[in-house]
Design a binder for these strands. Structure first.
Lengths: 253, 253
DNA sequence: GATCGTCGGTACGTTAGCGCACCAACAGGC
DNA sequence: GCCTGTTGGTGCGCTAACGTACCGACGATC
């Protein structure tokens, strides 16, 4: 499934019109992103941006006492390094590879330049950023009001949506770090889901057996964010010489 | 204190170069914003944007069961309606006036047009949006890890930073809605602060007696966000011919 | 096969916050 | 004055999640 790598596996890149895509393509560098890799550290000035294809990256805030909390998740639907074009150049959060895979790297200056052409790429990046904002907001809401079990469901579904497989490679310890809860809390919640036949957990391998079942247990936060991503990010190329996909169209103002 | 109203009391407008400011000024409409007013509803397409001057507005998410949680706060440092230039036109959150006062309203089309000139206004709005993102992220972190008392301190300080007074008009019930906790929880936390001599609470009037004291009790979340706002948003006009308002400061921070 | 480190499961006391109920203090209107 | 609605203070039982501790199961390695 990842034998054939292409920048088009990233939805943002895939959504670019041909002219923009051709301009960037020569500069996109395929990189492998191993589990745990820190793409950038809190406060660090960005040199590159990343377009994940088969990997998933978490944005984490790490507190003074070492505790952490996930702020957002970025996979093949998005880009890492929005502070570059937003103008701040750094953020107080850390980006860590949560599910290993591949992605494409682009030099910061090139992205900035493309952004300032104020064309389709700018429009796309801003819409993506708005979707990301919704994800962050909803994370705040979920952290306030929902149980660990519901949050685990949400987290599993968000991850699943960004993978082509139904299996996650992820220890409970790591999930606990992402959610900002105890490892034991994850064990208990995952145990419930397992006994309910929704997932199968075994030493760092989670296999999702019943996705609809997860969706009935998850809180509204998952759906709110998913709906907003679907609304804001086109999942069909915007008129590029279509490879094999369906119709195109799908633009909006 | 609000006898003399001027768009310059809003930091974003104040930071605009003269040319941009002059272009917008004729279209800025002074409005009073009473407590509880809903500037826009979840999913509603925006017709105007607002630049608060003496008012404070909360972005809230309201859940299906009616419970709510504050996502971010916007005062004289910012603007309401970022989804307009981000491209989504709507958001899943609601904007409610949390502290009554004034602000300036601008027709959506005019802001959009100014944004697409890709000049100083665009740069300013994007930087502000990044600051807002930090606020949302940190809200998520705070909701996860910190006690009601710490969150109350953060909330008081965030509000205080956006007012020129040391007194807030705000019932415990409303604060509870913002923080997404029980009213009694706020009562207990506020009671502690009051017994410690930091604030004085009386039927919807909170007077802050010892701001430094609050700052020692607040969690790091407050400081992270404040630092990021200070970094990203200029609080000094960028070389505009200063009008006539007293000193051109008045804006305070 | 024995060893060791990683990963996950379980138990137990503690605590923060919830839901509920109730009441006191106060403000405003009559 | 009196009544009524609003606001804030308190108590109590309950639950979710925490911190801590411990242990078993598995995988890799020697």
């Amino acid at each position: 499934m990842s034998i054939l790598n292409s920048p088009m596996q990233n939805h943002l890149l895939a959504a670019l019109p041909a002219a923009e895509y051709e301009r960037l393509a020569p500069h996109l560098e395929l990189v492998t992103m191993p589990l745990g890799q820190v793409l950038y550290e809190s406060g660090e000035r960005l040199q590159q941006v990343y377009f994940p294809t088969s990997s998933i990256v978490s944005l984490l805030y790490v507190m003074e006492d070492g505790a952490s909390a996930e702020i957002a998740v970025v996979g093949n639907e998005g880009i890492l390094g929005i502070s570059l074009f937003m103008g701040g150049n750094t953020t107080p959060s850390r980006a860590v590879v949560q599910s290993e895979g591949h992605g494409y790297r682009l030099q910061a200056q090139l992205l900035k330049h493309e952004f300032h052409r104020a064309g389709p790429m700018q429009r796309l990046l801003l819409r993506y950023t708005q979707a990301l904002i919704t994800q962050m907001s909803q994370t705040a809401v979920c952290n306030r009001h929902h149980s660990v079990e519901q949050q685990l469901c949400r987290w599993l579904l968000w991850s699943l949506d960004r993978l082509s497989s139904d299996e996650l490679i992820m220890t409970q310890e790591l999930i606990a770090n992402m959610l900002g809860v105890r490892r034991e809390g994850v064990t208990v919640a995952a145990g419930k889901l397992q006994r309910a036949g929704l997932i199968n957990y075994h030493r760092g391998h989670i296999k999702v057996l019943d996705r609809p079942g997860l969706e009935t247990r998850v809180c509204e936060c998952y759906h709110v964010v998913k709906t907003e991503f679907d609304r804001l990010i086109p999942d069909v190329p915007q008129g590029k010489p279509v490879h094999s996909l369906r119709t195109h169209g799908q633009s909006d103002g």
